[in-house]
Each structure stands twice: as C-alpha cells, then as structure tokens.
Design a binder for these strands. Sequence first.
DNA 1: TCCGTCTTGTATAACGTTGGAAACCAGGGG
DNA 2: CCCCTGGTTTCCAACGTTATACAAGACGGA
Lengths: 346, 346
Amino acid sequence: MSLKDVAEQAGVSIKTVSNVVNKYEHVTPATREKVQAAIDALGYRPNLTARHLRKGRTGIIALAVPELGNPYFAELAGAVVDTAAEHDYTVLLDHTQGRRERELLVTQGFRARVIDGLILNPLELEAEDLASRTDEAPLVLIGERRYDLPYDHIAIDNIAAARAAVRHLLDIGRRRIAFLGARGDRHSHPAHLRLLGWQAELAASGVTADEALIARVEGWDRADGATAMAALLDAGQHPDAVFAYNDLIAIGAMRVMAERGLRVPQDVAVVGFDDLTEGRYGAVTLTTVAPDKRAIARMAVESIVGRLTDGPPEEAPGGGPRQLQPEFALLERESTVGRSAGPPLD
Amino acid sequence: MSLKDVAEQAGVSIKTVSNVVNKYEHVTPATREKVQAAIDALGYRPNLTARHLRKGRTGIIALAVPELGNPYFAELAGAVVDTAAEHDYTVLLDHTQGRRERELLVTQGFRARVIDGLILNPLELEAEDLASRTDEAPLVLIGERRYDLPYDHIAIDNIAAARAAVRHLLDIGRRRIAFLGARGDRHSHPAHLRLLGWQAELAASGVTADEALIARVEGWDRADGATAMAALLDAGQHPDAVFAYNDLIAIGAMRVMAERGLRVPQDVAVVGFDDLTEGRYGAVTLTTVAPDKRAIARMAVESIVGRLTDGPPEEAPGGGPRQLQPEFALLERESTVGRSAGPPLD
DNA sequence: TCCGTCTTGTATAACGTTGGAAACCAGGGG
DNA sequence: CCCCTGGTTTCCAACGTTATACAAGACGGA
C-alpha cells in the first residue's frame, strides 16, 4: 500500500498523490477529490519511515532518565511527552539506571538518525564522555549535574533551593539539621549542589555544619533514605531536622522515624525535594522544594525543537550554550509545621 | 556520511561495506580489515532510518498507558523498557490520559510503519473502536478491560484477586467492607471486575453487600480516593474495612482517615491494589494485591516480538488470540494487621 | 589443460517518499 | 493562428540501505 497504488487507482501520477497528501495548494479540486477518494478507498496511510529517510527528520526525540520507577522522573516524562506532542514530536523513552555506560551509549546515538534530538538527565556521566560525542543531533541536559560543555543545560538553582530549605528549618528553630543523601564515598561528587547549599546556609547563619549529620546513600530511593536515617540514629545522632536530597529519601527516613517513635515534625522536622504527589498524601504531608517540572519539560523540548527548526541560536553576547533556570518554590506542609523551642540565632 | 563514502575510502563496492557492517561471513580478512579501517577513519554509523525502510522493521514498539504520573504505569513502563531492550527493541512511549480519542488514535497507527508493534492499556476504548482497526502492526492489550476481539490480552484474574483481598478482610473479622473506586455514574462500567469480585466474595460468605458502601470516583489518583472516602464518611457510613480499586485510592483514603482520627487498621483495615513501592513506606504500610508487573511486561513484549519473528501463532485447538494471566499475590502488611472483634461468619 | 565448484566481490534494483525541473494544457493577447 | 503565461501535473533523481543475481577469481580433480 503505497503512493503508487493510490496513483494507479486514481489514474494520476505518484507525485500528484503526494501533493494531495501534503496539502500542496495547486491541485484542482477535481483532481484532489479523485485522489482523496482513492486514498479513502484503499485506506492509504503514508509510510513515515520513507518520509523520514527522504526528509532527514523523524519527529522523534529521545528522553533518557535514570529510572522510571522514580516518580520524579515519571512525572517529568509525562510532562515531556505532553509538551513534545504540542510540537508534533513523539518521545522515545529510555532509562539508564544511572549507569555510566548506558548514559554514554545514549549520548553516542544509540538510535542514530531515528531520533532528531535527545534530552538526557545524567547521573554518572563524565565531562570527557560528552566531549567526545560525535552524534550531531541536538542534546540538552537536565538535572543537577553541570558540565562546562556546549550543550544547553536546564536545572533549577540547586544551591539556592537547598539554602531556602535549610533557611526554613532554621526559621522554625531547628539547629541540628541533618543532610540525607550525600553520595557514597565520593564526598565531592559533582552532583552535590544541594549538600553545598546546606553547608552554605548553615555557615551563613553561624550554625555549625556537623559532619556527623551528613548521611550517605547508595541510591536515591526510599529504601536508601531509610537505611541512611537508621544509620544516623544508630550512630547516636539526634537531629532535630532533616533535609533530604529528595522526597523519596525523606519518605524512607520518615518511615524509620515512625518505627522508632520519633514524631514528625515535633521531634524531627523534614524537608524533601521534588514535590512528588506522594508527599502530599502521607500521614504527615511533606514540606518540599518544588521544581517547576512543566517548565523543565517545556524548556527542554523547546531547546531541541528550536535548534531543529531554526538551527543553533545565534551566539548571544555571552555566546554559546544556555544555562536555563526554571523556577522553584518551597512548599511548607505538615512536616515542618510549628516552632520548636530551639535557641534563637545569634 | 554513508556506505558510499566508506566504499570510496576503502576502494570497494557499497555492498561489500554493507557486508562488513552486517557481519556477513564470506569476506576475506584483508577486505574486512580495509573496510573496517575506513569505517573507523570516517566514524561511519549506519543510518537506521534507511535500514528501516529497506527492511520494513524499525525495532521500535510503542507502549501507551493512561498516565505516566501514576506509579503503577511508570513502574510497568520501566519493566517494559527493560524487557524490550533484552530483545533489542526500543520503546516509544505515549500516554492517553484515559481519553478515548487518544486511545483510538494510538490504535489506528499514529506512527504508521515506525512502530513494529503496540502495547496498549485501554481505559475508555470501546470494542467497536478496536474492531475497525486497520493498522496491521501487532497489538497486545493489557489491563482490566476485556474485549472479545482477536488480540492477545494480558491481565491477572481481577475477580479472583479482588476476592482474595475481600476474603482477607473477612478473615480478620471485618464485615462492613467498603469498595472505593466504582466508576462515576456508569455502574456497569466494563472495567469493574474488581467490584464484581468484591460482590462475589461477600455473597459467597453470606455477608450483605451494602450498596451504600460502594464509593464512586472520577479518576484513579490519590485525590479521587480522598474525595471518595470523605464522601463515604460524610454520608454517615462507618465501614470497618476498605478495599480500594488501587493503591493510590487507598492512600488518598488513608490520608482522609488520618485527618478524621480514624486509625488504620484498628478502626478501618485497608487493602489496595497494584503493590506500589509507595505503599511500603507510609506511616502504615499498605496491604495490597500485587500483580507480577515484570511478568506482565515480559508477556506483552514477547507477544509482540513473537508475532514479529514467527508470524501469528498457529491457531491452537481453541484457536485465536490468547488470554494470558500473570500471577498475583496478596501482600499482607500493617494496614490489615490484627483481628478485630467482629462476629464470626455463619 | 580444462571444467565444475566454491568463494568473494560487484552491479543493479528495489523500499516509499519528496524536491526540482520539465512538460502539458487552457485561455488570452498579438 | 501562434505564442506566451500561469497554473497544474508528470518525470526523474535522490535519501541510504539491503536482496538478488551475477561476475570474477581460486582451487582441486579429472
């Protein structure tokens, strides 16, 4: 079933059928009608693969996130799918499970020429991996990790967001504020802007940033939060607040607190990060830093679509790739309600 | 950058390069090496779009679910992506937002010839929509809705699963068991096998299935569960147990109970459906029916891949499409712990 | 030496589409 | 009556790949 069949049926040339299909205007109504009738009769649908080959575009963009089971990425993926659809693009989805080799594979064009562009949220990828990229499809990076490379990057101001969260905990009188979610042994993991924000805000307020209150994790899921919180408590620490790397870790931590009879927020206030819907429905609703996910999705898709439509943006005065910062908001909920009897700040 | 360029560089024909790329065995080592050198020198990568056109296959299967923000579908999508990758397929993702027109669009081949097959979880689609489908790519249906149509269908035994859940609630002594999640005004919505299971198990145990304990919902998210539970309580009902259509509804309901001072499980026991990770980390962990998601993903992908590889399976004695039923398990957790003082069953 | 056989490489034709150029056809002006 | 013009349609080539058929050597046995 191809243009050829329709052309024969209608008694016209292949190109005329193509013109009708593509709504080319200089086709007489009579011809158009005749062709349309043949199309309907045969149930013809254009072969998009052939069109892609001919036009060099597929209308498909890929989205690669670490893990779809993580609701943050799932919600983000949903937003990306919607936004892409508005621009007549479809989304090819992949998840890298946070493994460097998978991330590398994705950037190197695992689907050469079938995707027009790529949105990637890297976790483990190193700058050198990206520097050696040869695939010419537009790439846009999202998430906390930053590279000094010529690709658009979309992320909220993680340091400012973390500082706002810690500020809030200080404001309600907490002083022993734990950070849950430092990464394993690599203290200086380049993704830890949120840890830096925690340190910065404490320092700015003259509160000691106790290293013992930094809990490390193996991953970013609820179980990792639970493990980290348990480890912290087992080490004899008594934080009066927890700032978690993300909501999942916060939720895992809160579960452990519940098991051990610690009340949230009376004994320990908790702030998470991501604004998962899940956080709004726990027994104690979770205060959280809410990145504007729809804005992230929109910026990412439009970065790709823009480059495909208009070519790379003319070098602005500063030149080069853009650093886009969507808005964020601190949503105060039950997990930080009420002022405890902490000492006033000096 | 095409086979032609590589061929010129290596001083051989296009087809020979193609043979090397495709690991055709009758190529002398010398030639192979020469060609490989040219490939490496030019950084050649095959154009998959052209390959797709020529071979008539793309290696892409589409997965259409109602909503990615729903963790059940997100987790399922993750499993499908993984399983597809094992078979060297990539997944194109779409979500229909449970709207019939979107579901219809997807089945009619919204990406004609770019997808080799389609996995669809329909909500609103009617049998006649599917009956008129012309796209010839293999289609497999997943989820609670059943159609008497020649497509493989994958779903756990929803009635049996619901009965197991209700049975468990009866076993721990509950008698006023509410059902949360009937659909709007359409009482006989064809998706409500779980409601039928609730009715059947109550009937089998000689417990009255009180219509007043059936709460309707507009959607399937936490907010809908909260609304439904609030409505039930506002209507003066005092259930001692809740069987929810899914975990999200259960979680929303539990939130409302917490707000109103009802204890779970002491005052109201709760059973959900889906085994979301989320349900394992609430203040009260959620008893739930756990469908084997990885099995669902595996069956769906292998149904598609099988038809693509071997053609439609030879008509079994019964003939026609298959009804595949993955396993499920009832996971008992805190939300149904402990036996209350209900009267013994007669 | 010659012929069949086996191996290796090549030429050509598709796959279905679209862009560009050329051809066709009426109608009107010279 | 012919040519020109403008609109409409057709012809041809190309996108990059792989399948098919075939040609060219190499090799061994008669």
